[in-house]
Nucleic acid binder design. Structure first.
Lengths: 266, 266
DNA sequence: GTCTGTACCG
DNA sequence: CGGTACAGAC
């Protein structure tokens, strides 16, 4: 590996506090090789974020916390040039689901999409509206020509290849046509699903239900993505899911596994 | 020590489940030298009692559990001749606070008295009524001539010697005249406070508040007792509080320490 | 299945 | 301060 390799991870941790020791052990296991980590589902306020252990490992943490639910943080070895919490519209910023950090080489949108609900339900509608708003935010804030990555838990499995059993999961939340279409509109704008781009045929999940020990039968979904503009994706050398923090019993893991992207930085 | 030494312990564990590993470590630390253990505040139903580890260590457990609150169990190497749960009156047996086991050599009443409340309050009245009922139960069920021990968490500090600071604790729950009088009536009936009998001047607490790290300043109270009839007490060779399971930080200990009585059994 | 709040009791 | 129960979310 050349020394100018940069690694970005995205990890829905399902509580940064309950999972702290596991996350730190994971960082150590990886020999602290991640340059940027995008966390989702902090389930903690800014004040409750365990800042010290991350600072001790050399990370600056851009945090947008919330009590009990949601919450995102982007922790990076280099301090970002700017941080924006949310969409910048009061109406859509009641939930902490999005944090944007800019770096000299690229811009990073770290998001936690709503889970949604049954088709036609209130939560289903909210998810679609949220995605529509995300699209407009990206359209208004960025250009497909700039190096941009949109990364996080999208709570959508884009195709049937991204779920363990399309038959069993027909109509399941995260696989509905409207949800897939909402993400696809982001791709149409100019973002590339880098995992699928690099591995067109590979089935690789990032989430497994707690119930029934789904991780042990690999019955999961691909819900976590890095979508990048071509200017960003040309930097990428590889990407993969790191199962280390997921395939274990104790301490109790998150239901998600981290997704790692490696790039060269000139 | 002669091999016919018998050891009885009483221990308010403040949840038998949350404290299981600590209790088992404690038994091991003591080289499994306890013949009878009286537990209070199981905070678990009969079905939730962790029976196996105690059975594996050779104990028969007479359990009277309750969800979330109260709950008592008497675990003994020899199976008791009989077990009675509660007072035997529906009205007074809604809470699991008392279990009586009979053995060939003596009878054992294991109790968890109500904590009570501010003087004049509902809970204060309930505690006094409960003690009145306990007195009548003992009067009606036993004779001061028989070998009988009444052991457990009485939630009363009998005298000012039994609290760390009579000045600071003036009027504190557990030190009120009516509460002390309630316990004294048991002594008047024919029971001996064996610790005080053997150590008339010694200040030794069995409970320390969680708040403020009271254990580290020995700011406690003596709330746990073994009261015995003379026929029982004549068997006793020594008694003491075992601080091992209390003076520690992790795993979080109970706020009580076990009280141990040693006897000779002919 | 797992987590966080809130509530209640010690 | 520390335990359990319950509701709500995912």
């Amino acid at each position: 590996m050349p020394s100018n390799t940069l690694r970005i991870g995205t990890f829905n941790v399902n509580s940064i506090r309950a999972r702290l020791s596991l996350i730190l052990d994971w960082l150590t296991h990886r020999q602290d090789d991640l340059d940027i980590i995008c966390f989702q589902e902090l389930k903690a306020t800014h004040d409750d974020f365990p800042l010290s252990p991350f600072e001790e490992r050399g990370y600056f943490c851009a945090i947008w916390g919330q009590k009990a639910y949601n919450g995102v943080a982007t922790c990076s070895r280099n301090r970002p040039l700017s941080i924006q919490r949310g969409f910048g519209q009061k109406e859509w910023d009641r939930e902490s689901r999005l944090i944007t950090t800019t770096f000299p080489e690229f811009t990073l949108v770290n998001l936690y999409a709503p889970r949604g609900g049954e088709p036609g339900s209130q939560k289903w509608r909210y998810k679609l509206n949220w995605y529509q708003h995300l699209l407009e935010f990206i359209q208004n804030s960025f250009s497909p020509e700039q190096p941009l990555a949109v990364v996080g838990d999208f709570n959508v499995a884009l195709t049937d290849l991204d779920v363990y059993s399309p038959e069993e999961l027909a109509g399941a939340i995260g696989t509905l046509p409207e949800e897939r279409e909402a993400v696809r509109r982001l791709l149409d704008w100019g973002l590339v699903d880098i995992f699928r781009h690099l591995y067109p045929e590979k089935q690789q999940f990032t989430w497994w239900d707690y119930i029934g020990g789904a991780i042990w039968h690999n019955e999961g979904m691909r819900l976590d993505y890095l979508l990048g503009t071509p200017a960003f994706c040309q930097l990428i050398t590889d990407c993969y899911v790191d199962l280390w923090p997921r395939r274990r019993r104790r301490p109790t893991p998150s239901d998600h596994a981290p997704f790692i992207v490696e790039l060269v930085c000139r």
